[in-house]
Design a protein around this nucleic acid. Structure first.
Lengths: 191, 191
DNA sequence: CGAAATTAATTAACTAACTTTACTATTTCT
DNA sequence: AGAAATAGTAAAGTTAGTTAATTAATTTCG
């Protein structure tokens, strides 16, 4: 008696079909996971904002500051490199970098070899702030991941890196689908 | 020979200290994971926006529509319940629900038993749109998670649900820390 | 009962976090 | 040299949300 026969309303389609992701043929677990993932990324956004607050900047300034820290090397890093790294527009990076420079957390210099370019590095103060942050970052991260075994962490790491890759591909696929169907839309002007 | 002695600059602190998360004493892997997680959640945001576009609404309207679908039951669901479920302000839900009602995707009625309350349900059209969406949702989800084994998926699911829980706790901890240190801040007006 | 407090939804005004577009300065290519 | 490409920037606009105040209905309780 399970939607196999009779007049039961048409069984709803599934949001995923790969068998490894279905539990007894149902996508319920997958949906629950998607919801958790969403909730978690909202929380992470929150964590970033608070880390930013601790450092004295906004959430987005914080991730930009981090990117400078990660990418600066010996020579400093340019606006475009950061923009690509964070998948943000270079215009936005320029603006926020200027705020960080004004706040004294980032140093900015023209690249003498190519004067279009700019070399960004953490200022001493910026580096210090990020270093101080770690005193709260560590216990917070420890708390979030407190329940993980090493094996789970290794799996999580590995899986996450594959998801990043494949989601880029899936997005291309998706663009293809969405472009094809400019169907729906409750627009006001005819389409 | 590793920052144990000599004049080497003070070893930078780590962003996490739980031993299961360190690889040879380094948090490098953890940091890489954090970056991947960030990248992935940006992508997921993108996917949501495109799913929304397919349905004919914005990304946030799409997740609200989904929430209505999940929570409506037989009786419909109220604004506050949705707001809590999605961790958004009820004011925002009200606004977007009104747009969805105008678009004909959600039906709204006053709860006769408590006339402050509102009962929201998908309209037939709304339900149909979500059902149609699945034809692209399934292949996209299959693509994103194509590389996962069942065991990995089970681990991912399990881990994610714990992360949601513990991140809520960590956030409370964090609020405590950040409140204590209104230190930094490059404010203009004296503090 | 009737006043005070509480709750649900809404509105308006605002803010943060971006993007798009257009532009300038510089470098590279031919 | 001139055309095309590259790096960064400024200005204006958009989107996704928030906070604060308001209205209306309900509950609490002296």
């Amino acid at each position: 008696m399970k939607a196999t026969s009779g007049k039961a309303k048409a069984a709803p389609a599934k949001t995923v079909t790969k068998k490894e992701l279905l539990t007894k043929g149902s996508d319920a677990n997958f949906r629950q996971y998607i919801h958790d993932l969403f909730a978690f990324s909202v929380r992470m956004q929150d964590v970033r904002n608070r880390f930013g607050a601790f450092v004295g900047v906004s959430g987005s300034q914080y991730i930009i500051l981090l990117a400078v820290s990660n990418l600066q090397g010996q020579e400093g890093v340019g606006v475009n490199v950061i923009a690509k790294h964070l998948q943000l527009s270079s215009a936005f990076i320029t603006m926020e970098i200027n705020n960080l420079v004004t706040a004294g957390l980032v140093d900015k210099a023209t690249d003498p070899a190519d004067r279009r370019r700019v070399r960004l590095m953490l200022s001493a103060e910026g580096a210090q702030r990020l270093e101080n942050l770690k005193t709260i970052q560590a216990p917070v991260n420890d708390a979030i991941y407190s329940s993980l075994t090493r094996e789970e962490f290794e799996t999580l790491r590995d899986v996450m890196s594959r998801l990043v890759q494949h989601s880029a591909e899936a997005l291309a696929l998706l663009d293809f689908y969405v472009a094809k169907s400019s169907s729906n839309k409750t627009g006001t002007y005819g389409g």
